[in-house]
Amino acid sequence: MADLIFSLTTLCFSIYLFVGSSKLPKGVSNIPGPGFFPNLLAWVILFLSCALLLNGVWKIIKRKGQRIIRGRWKRTLLIIIGTFVYVLLWGKGNFFINTWLLLLFIQLTTKSKWYYALIGSTILSLSVYLLFGKIFHVMLF
């Protein structure tokens, strides 16, 4: 199953590369231009995806295909979204508070005790702020 998803995605990607590289000049008289490599990559990826696709179909027919590992969808998705929101809100509000909220959120979702999470995220966001903002002069907000 996993192989099937991956190969179909890369197959689509190779088609995108074909379209994208078709606008770039291929080069003149044996000297490759900007479009040469993207085009070459598109061919190679197309070929490899087809191979993997056939391989995947074959495995499914023979019922050998490996399953995707089961896990905790919900909390992972929550944390990914939380991180995304943090990235989106970068530069808005206050660095320390944003960071503190993200860290608290991750720790609470991963089942940390609330007082532990509170202390942990406070110490961590404070040290990140001091280390990067004050010592390394990174432009935080």
Binding site: T99, T110, Y116, A117, V128, F132, L140
Partner: peptide, 16 residues
């Protein structure tokens, strides 16, 4: 705690 390790890696990776 594992939860704290995860948190540390995420924030250090982002800010780093």
């Amino acid at each position: 705690s594992q939860s704290f390790i995860w948190t540390t890696i995420i924030i250090l990776s982002l800010v780093g």
